Simulated assay, not measured.
Amino acid sequence: MTEKTTPTILEWAGGLDALQKLTTVFYGHVMQDPLLAPVFAGMDKEHPKHVALWLAEVFGGGTAYSESRGGHPHMASRHLGRHITEEQRRRWTTLLADTADEVGLPSDPEFRAVFLYYIEWGSRMALIYSGDNPPPIDAADVPVWSWGQTPPWQPASE
């Protein structure tokens, strides 16, 4: 008898290829959006691939982003001084959710709940790191989301 295992969020999403399609289409939309395009002006053409690797790691797909890009400290550092507004954050999350529909990511409630929970959490972290008083960027691991659980975040103590 074959043992059943629960797929990772990444596997359920369709793997790295599905996330690369998502980020490629998404950042194409971002660059056409009057509110978001200025935030991403001068964006490296490889940015969508890097974000797909990040999402793959977040959703249980190994450590390729950490090994190739520097993990959480690198991601957090990319937001420093950007002064992202709440309006930009909301547009980013809405556009990403719409793009997930457009590219055909799974639409079942369990997947979308975990996916959107991370997008909401991650975009708020980006907002925090982009502000005037960001927390220290430490060597924290990339947060890994799974079914029915999320990693806790605790602000740095002063």
Rank of each mutant, 00 (worst) to 15 (best):
S68M: 12
P7H: 05
R82F: 12
Y117G: 15
Q32Y: 00
P7A: 08
Q149E: 10
S77P: 05
H47V: 03
L53V: 02
V103N: 13
S157L: 02
Y27A: 04
V114G: 03
A113N: 09
Q32V: 00
K45D: 13
V142I: 15
L16W: 01
G70H: 07
R124A: 12
A18M: 00
G70L: 07
A37V: 06
L53M: 14
D101C: 09
Q149P: 00
G148T: 04
W147T: 03
G148H: 06
P151A: 09
I84F: 14
G122V: 09
W54C: 09
K21F: 00
T23W: 01
S66I: 05
E86A: 14
A18K: 03
Q88C: 07
T23D: 00
R89H: 03
M75A: 14
A56T: 01
D98Q: 14
E57M: 12
W92K: 04
F59I: 02
T5H: 01
E110T: 08
T24G: 12
F59D: 02
R90T: 11
A64Q: 13
T63A: 13
M75Q: 04
T24Y: 05
W12Y: 01
R124H: 13
V51D: 09
S107H: 13
W121P: 01
V39L: 14
I119F: 02
G42S: 10
E120L: 02
F59M: 09
Y129H: 11
S77Y: 04
P155Y: 08
P134T: 09
W54H: 13
D33P: 08
D132L: 08
P34F: 02
S146K: 07
Q154W: 05
W12V: 00
D138Y: 02
L10A: 03
I119L: 14
R112P: 08
H74R: 15
F40V: 05
Y118S: 15
N133V: 13
T85I: 07
L16S: 05
V114F: 11
S146G: 14
A41Y: 06
S146I: 05
S130F: 07
P143Q: 12
Y118A: 12
Y117P: 07
G70W: 10
H83M: 09
E46M: 15
D132C: 01
K21G: 00
A100Y: 07
E57S: 11
D101T: 14
L36H: 04
R112T: 06
E120W: 01
P38C: 08
I9H: 00
P135E: 10
T6H: 02
P135F: 11
L10M: 02
T94A: 12
G81S: 07
F115T: 09
A156R: 09
Y118L: 14
Q32A: 10
D138K: 06
E67V: 11
E86R: 11
M125T: 11
Y117I: 15
Y118C: 15
V142A: 12
T8E: 01
T99V: 05
A37W: 01
H72W: 15
V39I: 11
E67R: 10
A41Q: 15
L55P: 11
A126D: 09
V30C: 09
Q32S: 08
R112V: 07
P155I: 08
H50P: 02
A18F: 04
A56H: 03
G14D: 02
A18C: 00
